[in-house]
């Protein structure tokens, strides 16, 4: 794969990252924000993977695998926290959550 295709994939990864930023900034529901964070992480992983094809040790791929595992841990804890907040306050809208609470 020559250098041109590499830059196309990097543009695509930058597009994924910025659409993740858009979703995080504009959507109101907490779970939607989690979906946006997932998109951002996938954009970063795509950059790692597209550089690892030129590496004999495949370090980019290994880094991306570690990043996926940590993301899975983070999403599960975040969802558990969100479910707890929802059960206590019946609110899942991030704007209203600012006013609820101590």
């Amino acid at each position: 794969m020559n250098e041109e295709h590499l830059t196309y994939y990097l543009y695509f990864a930058a597009f994924l990252f910025s659409s993740g930023v858009f979703v995080v900034l504009t959507k109101r529901s907490a779970i939607f924000v989690l979906i946006g964070v997932e998109l951002m992480l996938n954009g970063a992983n795509l950059v790692l993977a597209s550089f690892s094809q030129y590496d004999h040790d495949m370090k980019g791929q290994i880094f991306a695998i570690f990043a996926i595992v940590i993301t899975v841990c983070e999403v599960s804890i975040a969802l558990a926290i969100l479910l707890n907040i929802y059960r206590k306050t019946r609110v899942s809208n991030l704007d209203e959550l600012r006013e609820v609470g101590n």
């Binding site: 997932e38 993977a49 690892s52 695998i65 996926i68």
Partner: peptide, 26 residues
């Protein structure tokens, strides 16, 4: 796309953990 970028293990891990795990969780 990961398979095309010759990262086979990453592609399978992505399907198993992200698509099979995180999406179900969400």
């Amino acid at each position: 796309i990961y398979v095309i970028l010759m990262s086979e293990l990453l592609a399978v891990v992505q399907i198993m953990l992200y698509a099979g795990g995180v999406v179900i969780l969400l």
